[in-house]
């Protein structure tokens, strides 16, 4: 069966050890984590966690059931597909030699990114977008020389009914 990318979003108790339970479940049962994002919600007693995983459907079902079984997981949603908005942010440090500087700035402009740090030999670019945008940008920047990259992992939210 084909492995697909799944975005799982959870509301969990904001208590010590909760993240460890979730991550431990993935490692202990041999599930895979592509990215993981955690932060407090409006209610300081709960946190929201977004996990991206690669798995086939029966495994995804098992992952979601196992997560739901954890006492500290309050609510779980599979946000895969168009029903949700997904965003990721990245900081990309790219080599910026004199001959490339203009090209990089025009890419930054086209992708509506921001240059947040400049040096004689580099730019750090801040970009936010969905997976497609980030990978398109990275493909363009790669030949110019990416020195470092930091990505946040995906966060997602269900679209409100129209």
């Amino acid at each position: 069966m084909n492995e697909e990318k799944h975005v799982i979003s959870m509301l969990v108790d904001n208590k010590p050890g909760v993240l460890s339970r979730i991550v431990g479940l993935f490692s202990g049962r041999g599930f895979n984590i592509e990215s993981l994002c955690v932060a407090e919600t409006m209610d300081p007693h709960t946190s929201s966690i977004t996990i991206v995983t690669m798995a086939n459907l029966p495994i995804v079902e098992q992952i979601e059931k196992q997560l739901n079984k954890l006492v500290n997981v309050i609510k779980l949603r599979d946000l895969t597909g168009p029903k949700s908005v997904k965003r990721e942010m990245a900081l990309i440090c790219v080599k910026a030699k004199t001959e490339n500087r203009a090209e990089i700035l025009s890419i930054v402009d086209i992708f509506r990114c921001k240059v947040v740090d400049v040096g004689p030999e580099h730019y750090i670019i801040e970009v936010t977008g969905d997976e497609g945008k980030l990978s398109a940008l990275l493909n363009l920047l790669k030949p110019l020389g990416i020195k470092k990259i930091a990505r946040t992992g995906v966060i997602a939210q269900l679209r409100e009914p129209k």
Partner: peptide, 8 residues
């Protein structure tokens, strides 16, 4: 009673 047992 445990949904994770089913179809595991």
């Amino acid at each position: 009673i445990d949904p994770t047992s089913i179809r595991k």
